[in-house]
Simulated scan of single mutants.
Amino acid sequence: MLKTVHMAVFDTFSDWEVGHATAHINRELWQREPGTWQVKTVGRTADPITSMGGMRLLPDLTLAELRPADSAMLLLPGGSTWEAGELADFEEKAGEFLAAGVPVAAICGATFGLARAGLLDDRRHTSNDPGYLSMSGYSGLDHYDKTETAVTDGDLITATGTRPADFARAVFERLGLYEPHVLAAWYQLYGDNDGAGFYTLAQYEQQRAAAAR
């Protein structure tokens, strides 16, 4: 059965913050169950959007069409419009997902939106800085974790915008995308910039190919 991770897209979304996560969800290599995952983009409308990096794309579906029951996770990238309150409909959808027990993963500015919506008031979380989230007027500062760059609390993942690999690792772990030792090797390569992780991943794929013969 194909599992779908949905990613919010809107003008100015920070494409690099979700690049690791989306690329490796779509990429079968090293996955525990290759061929069972896909990413679909969700726009407020069906109109083309332009990312902060200048990439133009057409959403796969609209926000009104998105149902938690059809999704494995909702990814919320940062962008320059969260602080202005222009993405309240995505904040509302995130609340629907969490209420339905479907994970939500937010990075950078998206954490500001969730804070303003009250979704971080009672959940352990992180972001770019405690002072940044305080500007949202939220009441969850006591649950802010300054020690981690990505935090998972049940069905909610939050991360600072400067650590997209840490965000991706938390997403993969919550989805069960990789075996634990494979995830560790993935982060060794992409998070720690340690080439030894590549050889562990290559060996894993070779062993799996040999077992399939």
Results as ranks from 00 to 15, higher is better:
F13E: 04
F13C: 05
F13I: 10
S14L: 10
S14G: 08
S14T: 11
S14K: 08
W16C: 09
W16F: 13
W16P: 05
E17Q: 04
E17N: 02
E17H: 03
E17L: 03
E17I: 04
V18F: 00
V18H: 02
G19T: 05
G19P: 00
G19D: 00
A21T: 08
A21K: 00
A23Y: 04
A23W: 04
H24A: 01
H24I: 00
I25K: 02
I25D: 00
N26H: 08
N26S: 12
N26W: 06
R27T: 11
R27E: 10
R27N: 10
E28M: 13
E28Q: 12
E28L: 11
L29D: 13
W30Y: 14
W30H: 15
W30E: 12
Q31R: 13
Q31K: 15
Q31W: 07
R32H: 11
R32I: 02
R32P: 06
R32N: 12
E33G: 10
P34E: 00
P34K: 01
G35H: 14
T36K: 14
T36Q: 14
T36G: 01
T36R: 14
W37A: 09
W37D: 03
W37L: 08
W37F: 12
Q38T: 15
Q38S: 15
Q38R: 15
Q38D: 12
V39D: 15
V39G: 15
V39R: 11
V39T: 15
V42Q: 05
V42G: 08
V42C: 03
V42E: 03
G43C: 11
R44A: 10
T45N: 07
T45E: 08
T45L: 04
T45R: 04
A46C: 03
A46P: 05
D47N: 08
D47E: 10
P48W: 00
P48I: 03
P48K: 03
I49C: 08
I49K: 09
I49N: 06
